[in-house]
Design a protein around this nucleic acid. Structure first.
Lengths: 172, 172
DNA sequence: AGTGTATTGTTATACTATATCAAGAACAAC
DNA sequence: GTTGTTCTTGATATAGTATAACAATACACT
């Protein structure tokens, strides 16, 4: 599969606070359509809406937060399995990532490409950034190789304070 | 604080299946006593029992599994806050680690020392090994430095198949 | 023994996630 | 376009994880 171009300002670092997030969302939805088409699966309206809600949030969003925003036109709230099914689909097709340390989800910054998921989480503004760098993965693989461990999945989540937040007084 | 000697067969890799685990547990409890004394906090009977149950399990253990085994002499089951309070204490004093990707806990392999927590989890036998290697941390810090991120906490959990499990047919 | 602090008990409840079965929508073949 | 099949969603119930709040007890110090 061909490597999708990195979108918006998300390229391995934190977005600038003033970036055009509407654009991020639109790009993400379009990429998702492309990825699903390529994989021969359906990006249904339900799944599209969940993906959109994930992207709309600047921070990792929980399943129940999504649920609260997922009304069915007539304003009735969906049931949990509805959201979890959509999330499972999006995870399975690499359109979102799960943030284990928060029980929450973020949009994938480069869908349609195989990659190890490495996330930085700002404890001040709450935002997440997906990192795209080989060094951590290389180190992990080197260590695993030495002890004869066959890697299946990596969970790498670094919490701390992002550059933008360090450049101003601590958050209220 | 001085660096505690690494105990038993746990030194950055998976225990041999036939290792003397009773010894691991005994050593861990003794270290815990030392650490608590050094920090001027109380390793109460409740906390000691929870720590022992964590160590008795060869795999990451969940809070409710601990709860099920934590009877109060007369066979009555404790309530959740009892276990969570003990776990919080043990986490806070570096005697156990939380495995985010499993909502579970493991005993810390080198308590009383400041260290980044890096865990390998075998998806076959279910066991965990705490890694003690600078390379991953160095890579993470290098990446963080480049994007101006100030690290507060790292969650590094690598799932896969351990060497012992690869050396024999897949688990039943 | 009396006082203040830390720990544990107890009840209730919030939050996260899945199992199960029924109903509906999309698709392929005819 | 009808039929049969498969995928998707709806709906209800329940499992699993974690914390809030307040009461009671134990401990440490004088």
């Amino acid at each position: 599969m061909k490597r999708a171009a990195t979108r918006g300002t998300r390229k391995g670092s934190f977005d600038r606070p003033q970036h055009d997030h509407a654009r991020c969302i639109a790009d993400a939805l379009q990429s998702a359509g492309t990825v699903c088409a390529a994989q021969g699966v359906r990006l249904t309206e339900q799944r599209r809406r969940v993906l959109e809600l994930v992207w709309q949030s600047h921070r990792p969003i929980g399943a129940y937060e999504i649920l609260d925003q997922l009304t069915d036109g007539s304003g009735r709230r969906a049931a949990p399995p509805t959201v979890y099914r959509a999330l499972d689909f999006l995870l399975e097709h690499g359109l979102i990532h799960r943030v284990e340390s928060r029980n929450a989800f973020i949009g994938c910054s480069h869908p349609g490409t195989e990659h190890v998921v490495e996330i930085m989480l700002c404890t001040d503004c709450g935002r997440a950034a997906e990192i795209d760098d080989q060094r951590i993965d290389r180190a992990v693989r080197a260590v695993a190789a030495e002890i004869g461990f066959r890697i299946e999945r990596q969970t790498i989540e670094i919490a701390g304070r992002c550059g933008h937040c360090q450049a101003r007084p601590a958050h209220a």
